[in-house]
């Protein structure tokens, strides 16, 4: 391939911490990779693991779910539920042969703009290693 593969990353960021963290990175003029497409949700606990499957179906090469640090959740415990869910979902994806590097989760607080930058870089790196997601992407070819 002449051009380097640029993965699509869908990031579900919680409104109160991670989205604010990403916002801080932006207003502080920190450069984070443009591969990431951000979807703001109210809480990481709102992210249904089916979002992840659906994102991979629709063309994402990696997914990031990010919320407040444990104990800091705006809704007190939403991120604890999310943690259990995605621990299991990640294992399930791994079990069917999806690269675990496609399923990422992080805790980024509103003051951690720099951390958000690092997280995105790492997620993109992992997705690059995993290559294009072609296992169960909706294909238009066979329509």
């Amino acid at each position: 391939m002449s051009e380097e593969f640029e993965p699509n990353i869908v990031a579900f960021l919680c409104n109160w911490c991670s989205y604010a963290g990403a916002d801080l990175a932006g207003t502080s003029r920190m450069h984070y990779l443009p591969n990431v497409k951000i979807i703001r949700v109210m809480c990481s606990g709102r992210v249904n693991p089916l979002f992840l499957v659906n994102a991979l179906q629709q063309g994402a090469d990696g997914v990031l779910i990010s919320g407040c640090h444990p104990g800091d959740c705006h809704y007190l415990e939403g991120n604890f539920f999310a943690r259990r869910r995605f621990t299991l979902m990640r294992n399930l994806m791994e079990h069917v042969g999806v690269d675990p590097g496609r399923v990422n989760m992080s805790w980024v607080s509103a003051s951690e703009g720099a951390k958000f930058q690092d997280v995105v870089a790492e997620v993109v790196e992992k997705a690059k290693e995993a290559g294009p997601m072609d296992q169960f992407r909706r294909r238009q070819l066979n329509w």
Partner: peptide, 29 residues
Amino acid sequence: LFDYEPGVDVETEPLLASFNPQDPEEFIM
């Protein structure tokens, strides 16, 4: 991971409707 076995005790809570602050989180960045 969670030392949980479903359907043996009526008194337990459903796994994903409960949590433990000490749940494992090795893969979380």
